[in-house]
Design a protein around this nucleic acid. Structure first.
Lengths: 343, 343
DNA sequence: GTGAATATCCAAAGCGCTTTGAGAGGAAAT
DNA sequence: ATTTCCTCTCAAAGCGCTTTGGATATTCAC
């Protein structure tokens, strides 16, 4: 049923060359001819054979993914959400994935193999750490890549998409300070990840500008599962001087924190305020919390889709995308934030 | 640097045909010649070009995956673990993936598109429901597939890999009965999924054989996140006649259940017994629970790898795998099970 | 020793696309 | 009228593999 280039050319009374050029946007083809070609494509449902294109162009039309299988990462529901965004976009352009599960200590070898295999045109990178060694490595391998997030330290000239984590948490902290809170806790992601560091930095900076110091006892780092949100919050509440506000690095953590707060009999938005970062996980909407959550919002899935777009654009040579993008998270105020108690 | 077939043949003083045949296991090539060829492959590091193979054979050398993006599924950490197993095996054979995110209501269209695209040789299927419509659909599309799990009702002649869920929970229940427990609760997965149904069936059957009825109040169905394990257990414990033993469909659920039990001041393995199904998630080992958990064990990652092996074997036509496999879960007794209190 | 059957190997024809190098036709310049 | 230069189109040569349809030795039975 499927028609190929040769047949399509025959139908149109043109040569394969011309049809191919018309399809691939070459300038030396008459605008009218191009329209005729496109029309025929629509009518016949012609789809170029990817295998043939790969062979002819040497491009793989697929992107490599190294699936981290370290504890605390693979289990991450955020990864699935991001992946959905990537895949959603890739599928539109008929791009494939090569999924490489790899333990962190094998990552380097995995990337080398991937680059050498010729099976991928580009790779995607995430879970950035400080001075992340993967960035210089991929540059050396000279395989295109885009990272989600940013490293801290090391080279600065590499393509990334990140959200302004520092600013998001700076803004959130500022709001809490304006509401009169002084003891502000942070339930953060894993300590070694760059985004966690930046979020903490944002908090510290806001406190600093307000003339307040940061109490290192008031930050916990952990995998972003609600269990840990619960535990952290409990420990905070058991302090002699519990915080009056808490920032969570994920709505998942907030879920646990909220549980601990409720259990302690405190009223959210009154006795204690809470702000979470919202990755827009479809199964965990901040507005559905018993007390709707104030959040800094940025869609993880949208980030995935955008990165796929850039990766693919870079490969097919169409479109011109910025190398570095820093998205700003929106601060959305709901009922979980209120004035500090006793004010 | 990479050498191709033509060059390899030249080096060996053979024709491309012979080399190709030697490599692909055709019988009409001398054993000694084949050894020479294999030796040369080792020395040169020759790797066939997949794009060329695809073009020549018409095979895609890739497998399709429909990523469910429904609430409560995409968030599932079990999916990531399974995927890791699939990918691990696929990567060895240089197979690619086509990830198609899809909401349940679009699944049919997604499969159709996938089958028509010619981009995949086979697809993988999971999260079976009763009378799952996807099975007849894929049969009609006549695209090879393997399902993880089994439907209930509907056609029976389709390739699957499942664990004997009924038996696992039958065995577990039996153990509890032998220990003198009578009121046994079940914290199960989503009600509409086939594996949940089978697990419940196993419990009912064991109770039945013991001359006990099953109390429908003592089963809860939910997404397998620890939050729900916690809630379910709490509700069970608040009953006038709380169960003395509980079965959990996942260690993730057990995590929450254990929290609720501890919070109630009960001693696991003494006041109350608990058995969980263990998918061998690397980040949640039953032996690391404060009281090591008795489990029915079956590795999800191994299942993923096995399914990949079968899928790939079916495509390249090598190996002969059974169409239907039913793995038996091991029942591993640890400290979380003990005699019923008051016996 | 001859014909047929086997065992090995090879040349060449695709698979469906991109791309090079040129040709044909018409407009503009001389 | 001839030359030059675009504009538009094409034939044909790959890309690296598999596979068909022989060809050439070798072996066996008689």
């Amino acid at each position: 049923m499927a028609v190929n280039l040769k047949q399509l050319a025959e139908i149109l009374g043109l040569s394969q060359t011309t049809v191919s050029r018309a399809l691939n946007g070459y300038p030396e083809v008459n605008a009218e001819t191009r329209q005729r070609v496109l029309q025929a494509v629509r009518e016949t449902g012609y789809r170029p054979n990817r295998a043939a294109q790969r062979l002819a162009t040497g491009k793989a039309y697929s992107i490599g993914l190294v699936m981290p299988i370290a504890p605390g990462i693979d289990s991450d529901i955020h990864f699935g959400e991001f992946l959905a965004g990537l895949a959603e976009e890739a599928v539109k352009h008929d791009f494939h994935f090569v999924l490489n599960p790899s333990a962190p200590e094998d990552e380097e070898a995995t990337f080398r193999r991937l680059a050498a295999s010729g099976n991928v045109d580009a790779v995607f990178l995430a879970y950035m750490r400080a001075n992340d060694p993967r960035i210089p490595m991929l540059k050396a391998l000279s395989i295109p890549f885009v990272v989600h997030g940013r490293s801290i330290g090391g080279p600065r000239d590499y393509p990334f998409l990140d959200i302004d984590n520092r600013r998001a948490f700076y803004d959130a902290t500022k709001l809490l300070l304006q509401l009169g809170h002084h003891r502000i806790a942070l339930i953060n992601g894993p300590e070694y990840l760059a985004f966690s560091m930046r979020r903490k930095k944002g908090v510290v900076q806001a406190l600093d500008e307000w003339g307040l110091g940061f109490d290192d006892e008031l930050v916990h780092h952990s995998v972003m599962a609600d269990e840990y949100g619960y535990r952290s919050m409990q420990r905070f509440l058991h302090r002699p001087d519990p915080p009056t506000a808490v920032l969570c690095s994920s709505t998942v953590l907030a879920l646990g924190a909220v549980r601990a707060i409720n259990q302690a009999g405190l009223l959210i938005g009154h006795d204690i305020s809470i702000i979470a970062h919202d990755d827009v996980l479809p199964m965990l909407k901040p507005e559905n919390f018993s007390v709707p959550l104030t959040t800094t919002r940025s869609s993880l899935r949208a980030a995935g889709a955008r990165i796929a777009t850039r990766l693919i654009g870079g490969i097919v040579g169409r479109g011109d995308y910025p190398e570095q993008e820093l998205w700003r998270a929106e601060l959305i105020v709901r009922a979980s934030t209120g004035p500090a108690p006793g004010r």
